[in-house]
Design a protein around this nucleic acid. Structure first.
Lengths: 340, 340
DNA sequence: ATATAAAAATAAATCGATTAAGCTACTTTG
DNA sequence: CAAAGTAGCTTAATCGATTTATTTTTATAT
């Protein structure tokens, strides 16, 4: 018993496939097809469990009911959570997700965009690396909806959902200063993406306000964690005077904790720590680590809402919107209890 | 400038699209097409950056160059890592991944399988919930390659990649016993999937061997973590005599640590802990928590290798293979240094 | 009774590829 | 020199849907 096609249905019912197609696409009324026929076709289709071949459908209509999701790295808890939430809402709205990890690699991302185009995805959700401005511009020019998140491309006028990065680190750093810390470093991955620039700036602003000198260490990202640990270890060994550090991402923060553990640096007694992105590692550390929690649900929610809206108002180019969400500084004391 | 089709190429070069197609598919020699023409076409295609429409291609050939990946929950670090590794190797081999989270929900999984079929994915990678035996059977009957991992369906004869679950918990439990612990519980999510049954059994075997009585607590899974914490807290409050616990998954282990933190139970002084699945939370806990590390890379590697092999030997039904990998008990002492 | 409009259904083109089968012109061969 | 072979392309069918244009049937008005 091979797969049924619309022709099989039409033949079996002695009607034309056109009729079947109209009925199946809810255009029966519009095309004034007799109620009894509609009934008969609907029933039979239900009975034999016929499903239209979506490839053929996509080929003809140009719509694939698929959304392309490009994150930095799907194995990063932050992106994994967002992907999960987006996935759920996409499926509920009849869309499937094709995802991929860009690794912040411009060339790879360009190829992936081409791959997505090739597969005729209806919409794009991208946490963009730099250097893909032209490609995104082209997508927009071709009328394809694009929503960015976590960061955006300043030169490209498109919708994006972000958090208030600058205020987040500013606020976190001020928190440390108010607690009496005086030698506060900012450690993060080397990146000139918008979110990271803002995070560094927020830190610097806070220090400037109190007339401290900023100490920023940028680590070059590497798949191999050893290559992150090494330079960071060297940095901390060199700057013995530090009494606090703000980490720019969960990953770099986690590496930092590993290093402190190895070096026997006590957190927060020897070194106060605040990391961007909150997750179990920080919550369970003892004592738990203060973290800048991103509103993951809200981010995912906004991203998919904006995209779905664009998908449904095809052609009508609504002015692009940028949504900036607030983060939540999860202050965790030196008590061993979980505050969260 | 809209997208070029093969007809555009053919017209422009004044050849038939058949010729272009043959050349593009590397069948020029076979179809004895003149070298100069091949040259001319290749060059022009390169020049204008023509890419065949993959939907049309898939419709005609029946191949979509897509692999469907169904995990329990993409936001779980274990599955996220595996997904990431599989993704990488799939892309390298010209395959794209469509993924989804099953939530171990039978009905949802059935629908997702249908969705995948509908999209003509070439191969399936599934961490299967129970109850989808018939659906998988049908896939196999229709000649579609399926590889399972993390667990398998005993009634279905298909390839799968797993770890030695029984020995893993047996070994971990014995380790605790040898350390002198006498009241060891096993806490996990309620599940009758193969991997979980084996994990429980391994624990029981070890206890039986030493004539201890097993204490197994099965928590009903819930999206809302509160609903996991609550019954588990009740369990630990009730069993004050426990001095050690083996957790069946990373998620349940993490919840356990949160509870101990709340209750002020010191790990491992008041309660020794070993959890299945290793990740940063366990490594960074102080003192770090002993964990049963799954060979994530190997699992992903084997899964994709087996699947690619099946995809390349289409039709030739090779006997199905089961691959059982070894886990690694990461023993972490009470020293504060990272052993890992 | 006939022209006209409305209702109901269909034929055929199309989306963009692949591929079996066929055609033409030239070269071999007996 | 005619028959057979082969090199080099092309024609047309096909995959499975959607959709435009068209036809057939029935109802209504004149």
């Amino acid at each position: 018993m091979k797969k049924l096609s619309i022709v099989d249905i039409a033949n079996e019912l002695k009607v034309s496939k056109t009729t079947v197609s109209f009925i199946l696409n809810g255009r029966a009324k519009e095309k004034r097809i007799g109620e009894d026929l509609v009934e008969r076709v609907t029933k039979y289709v239900e009975e034999v469990g016929y499903k239209p071949n979506s490839l053929a459908k996509s080929l003809r209509t140009g719509k694939s009911n698929t959304i392309g999701l490009m994150v930095e790295d799907i194995s990063n808890p932050f992106f994994a959570s967002i992907a999960r939430l987006i996935e759920d809402r996409a499926y509920k709205n009849g869309y499937k997700i094709i995802y991929c990890s860009t690794d912040n690699d411009t060339q790879k991302t360009k190829e992936l965009i081409n791959m997505f185009r090739d597969r005729h995805v209806d919409g794009y959700i991208i946490a963009p690396p730099e250097g893909i401005e032209d490609d995104v511009e082209q997508l927009l020019k071709d009328g394809l909806p694009v929503v960015m998140f976590d960061r955006h491309l300043p030169k490209v006028n498109t919708d994006y959902v972000e958090i208030d990065n600058l205020f987040s680190t500013y606020n976190a750093t001020r928190h440390l200063i108010q607690q009496g810390y005086k030698n506060i470093a900012f450690v993060t991955f080397a990146s000139s993406q918008t979110q990271m620039m803002a995070r560094v700036q927020g830190y610097k602003d806070a220090l400037k306000e109190s007339r401290f000198t900023p100490v920023v260490k940028e680590i070059v990202f590497n798949q191999d964690e050893e290559m992150i640990i090494k330079p960071m270890t060297a940095f901390f060994k060199k700057h013995k005077d530090l009494d606090a550090v703000v980490f720019g991402t969960n990953h770099v923060g986690t590496c930092g904790l590993k290093i402190f553990s190895t070096l026997g640096v006590k957190v927060p007694d020897d070194m106060a720590v605040i990391s961007f992105d909150d997750y179990d590692v920080f919550k369970l550390y003892s004592p738990p680590v203060t973290a800048i929690a991103q509103p993951v649900d809200e981010i995912a929610d906004n991203v998919i809402t904006v995209l779905l809206k664009k998908l449904n108002t095809k052609g009508v180019s609504t002015a692009s919107h940028s949504i900036i969400l607030k983060t939540n500084l999860q202050i965790r004391g030196s008590s061993s209890g979980l505050k969260d």
